[in-house]
């Protein structure tokens, strides 16, 4: 038996000096909450985190973008509905759809913003049990070929944090069938569907695989002792994946 790991003990110094050259933008909207957490996860993976402000009109030469969780604009109107029209979002939408295929990850509220922006299909409604739910959640990696999942094994189970109010993923049957057929279901809930999401879907990607959105929070599972009990760092794979993508390793 190993000793209970010390908090922070598992963080490795980056071994690849090319990593720090990768600039990953983290967008802050009014009401964004997990931006510092996403930046920390980027740093722990060895890359450079770049703060982006919703009102910015340029993307500051970033190589990838994370839209973090929170309650941007209080989730008022609909989650993500007001943020979707931020000036920076126009740039992100263009860059994601361009030939350069900017990698974009939307976490929780970020996922909601990506669906409102039509970068990803479907939408999120209130959890089926109608309450905010915070728990450690097991996910299955269904597609390990996207820009944000290639560091995982296909079918791998990972434990990350889930915390949301409007987390029930819905789409019409045709869209769901298409997502399944095209392998665009990136993550599924395992063991317990925590919010009534259709077909246990926790996260999806666009057709090109550069845009990924999910409700759970990988950035809260990157440091031993500060995430899910007794596991802790399963979320780092997201940030390692995008570095693989950017550095051409995969």
């Amino acid at each position: 038996m190993t000793e209970t790991p010390l908090i922070g003990g598992a963080v490795q110094a980056p071994v690849d000096t090319r990593l720090a050259g990768a600039r990953i933008g983290v967008v802050t909207f009014p009401g964004t909450l997990d931006d510092r957490d996403a930046s920390r996860a980027v740093r722990l993976s060895g890359a450079t985190a770049v703060d982006l402000w919703h009102a910015d009109t340029v993307l500051a030469d970033v190589d990838a973008v994370i839209i973090p969780g929170g309650f941007s604009y209080g989730d008022y109107l609909r989650a993500g509905a007001i943020s979707r029209f931020a000036p920076l979002m126009a740039k992100i939408i263009d860059a994601a759809n361009s030939d350069a295929k900017l990698p974009v990850l939307g976490i929780c509220n970020g996922f909601q913003i990506l669906t409102e922006a039509h970068l990803l299909p479907g939408s999120m409604i209130k959890n089926d049990h109608l309450k905010f739910l915070c728990r450690d959640q097991v996910l299955r990696v269904e597609n390990n070929t996207t820009a944000w999942t290639n560091a995982y094994a296909a079918g791998q189970d990972i434990t990350v944090v889930l915390k949301n109010q409007d987390g029930q993923y819905i789409a019409d049957e045709k869209t769901l069938d298409a997502l399944e057929a095209e392998g665009r279901v990136a993550f599924r809930y395992v063991g317990h569907n925590p919010n009534g999401s259709r077909r246990d879907i926790a996260g999806i990607s666009n057709a090109a695989g550069n845009v990924v959105g999910l409700m759970p929070h990988p950035e809260h599972a990157v440091e031993t002792g500060y995430g899910p009990a007794h596991t802790g760092t399963d979320g780092l794979g997201f940030f390692n994946s995008v570095l693989n993508t950017l550095l051409g390793d995969k």
């Binding site: 510092r36 957490d37 920390r40 905010f132 915070c134 440091e223 500060y226 995430g227």
Partner: peptide
């Protein structure tokens, strides 16, 4: 479970532990 105990990334312990601990 209706409260976010993780946000901020500095929660080292939270309920039901005897004390909440923040880095």
């Amino acid at each position: 479970n209706q409260y976010d105990r993780y946000v901020g990334g500095n929660t080292a312990m939270a309920f039901p532990d005897d004390a909440g601990v923040i880095r």
